[in-house]
């Protein structure tokens, strides 16, 4: 099986890798680039644990092929803090105990940031619908939704 050479941008850095065309972007991020923040919960688009943005659009990286990333700009959870300083969403997740095992957390954070980039002042209903494709088996969602609402309020200042 011949591999394809892919050049792409991840969190602002140009990176290159060789991908079998069947490999997903999630596999490439985790196994070739060592970016293991994005998780594989299901591999079928149902759980959102693998959420990343590609050219600013929120997607499940388990449903994108690595070779499709050629020439694109990808952001992952690893690009969220600023030189070690947590993003307000990350801080509010910690402060409000919006995580337990943490497996779903990177996906929730990436998805929530994509929402706030588009809509800095969402209603609770908008937050719940936006995050409907992110599953959490531990927290019961309320603390997650509250953390997103509080982070949004802080970011609006």
């Amino acid at each position: 099986m011949s591999k394809i050479h892919v050049t792409t941008t991840v969190n602002g850095d140009t990176v290159e890798f060789l991908a079998d065309p069947r490999e997903t972007l999630l596999d490439c991020l985790r196994d070739k680039l060592g970016l293991t923040g994005s998780k594989e919960g299901c591999g079928t688009g149902d759980c959102g644990a693998c959420s990343v943005t590609v050219d600013g659009v929120l997607v499940s990286s388990c449903l994108v092929l690595g070779v499709e990333a050629q020439g694109k700009s990808v952001t992952t959870i690893e690009g969220m803090d600023k030189d070690g300083e947590l993003h307000p969403l990350q801080r509010h997740f910690v402060e409000k105990a919006a995580l337990q095992c943490g497996f779903c957390t990177p996906g929730f954070l990436v998805a929530a940031k994509a929402l706030l980039d588009k809509n800095p002042d969402p209603t609770e209903t908008e937050v719940r619908y936006w995050l409907a494709g992110n599953l959490c088996r531990c927290t019961g969602y309320d603390k997650i939704v509250r953390a997103v609402m509080d982070a949004a309020a802080e970011m609006r200042g």
Binding site: G45, G48, S51, V54, V57, L58, V59, S60, L63, V64, A111, A114, L115, W130, L131, A132, G133, N134
Partner: peptide
């Protein structure tokens, strides 16, 4: 169709 993530594609 699907979630926000699915809608992106």
């Amino acid at each position: 169709v699907g979630s926000t993530q699915v809608q992106g594609r």
